[in-house]
Design a protein around this nucleic acid. Structure first.
Lengths: 158, 158
DNA sequence: GAGCAAGCGGACCTCCATGTCTAGATTAAT
DNA sequence: ATTAATCTAGACATGGAGGTCCGCTTGCTC
């Protein structure tokens, strides 16, 4: 198969969180988020619940309900989102379960652990705020028309 | 679940290749490799076939048969092994399939692509030779007694 | 307070990575 | 030539990630 750095579900979670970061205030419904992120709606609902349990987003029920971030986009790192879905762990003990009480990993797992450490450092330094409009042009999710899309969705409802 | 940098199968492939690198010449049978790497034998057989198809190892059948590397350990990188099992791909186009002919990824996928690039660079610079006895003490796969284990296996058969 | 929009939660389905099993092909040794 | 060891190849089993569906709960709006 094909190596994916992140699981599909984690990708979905990141997309959704970025969309919510883009919409600074107000609630966004699951169905709107599903449209914008191109994630199957019923599945996205589950992903959002995971994010809610990790206190990254909060939902409100009822008419006009939806989700929003629990804190500022600057305060939410990629690592936060990743760990909410499927956490990254350093390699602490030998995966073969051999006697290595000394805590010294073999070269293979040492190198792998270094790579994981690198990724964690990388991801913990990137916030949701970095994901929206780093260029002059704002395009949160690849789509040049994200801005108008969001606005259309808003006006379509109001 | 839990994020794993590499798939289980890729881990297995690396372990096996490292064991073969350690045994500089001569053939090692699948069953010996399975014991040393702690990989289910029948599954390891499949993994070795994948490595053989990618020309990283060659097998010889019959009594006294087994596997060996096709070239020196210094000539086989981690990336070679990884790509033989499940290749790492850079992100070239938007995973959402949106109009981005310009070739410019959104911040999210740009960051992810950078991480992947980092990993590829890392992995392509590490060879199987780096995996055996980087420390004074030789311990290819976490096990301090790897050396004696291999020798035992050899003498046990001869 | 009735009705409806939306999140919540669980049951269920599907596919693929991982793993098992078995029969066949090849080679060395006797 | 026969036998035993070993790789090769494919069919089959299993568990978990990804995805669907439906009924329940909450809380607007009128």
């Amino acid at each position: 198969m094909e190596v994916r750095l992140l699981s599909q579900t984690t990708e979905y979670a990141l997309r959704a969180t970025i969309c919510l970061a883009y919409r600074q205030e107000g609630l966004v419904s699951t169905s709107d988020l599903a449209t914008m992120t191109k994630v199957p709606m019923n599945y996205l609902a589950k992903v959002l619940q995971l994010l809610a349990r990790s206190n990254i987003v909060t939902g409100r029920r009822g008419v006009g309900g939806g989700y929003k971030l629990t804190r500022a986009a600057e305060e939410i790192s990629m690592l936060d989102v990743i760990n909410a879905i499927d956490p990254i762990h350093r390699i602490k003990t030998c995966p073969l379960g051999l006697d290595n009480h000394s805590g010294t990993l073999c070269p293979l797992h040492r190198k792998l652990d270094e790579s994981i450490e690198m990724l964690i450092n990388q991801f913990s330094g990137i916030t949701m705020a970095d994901m929206i409009g780093e260029l002059g042009d704002i395009r949160p999710l690849c789509d040049e028309d994200m801005t108008t899309q969001v606005e259309l969705t808003m006006s379509g409802k109001k």
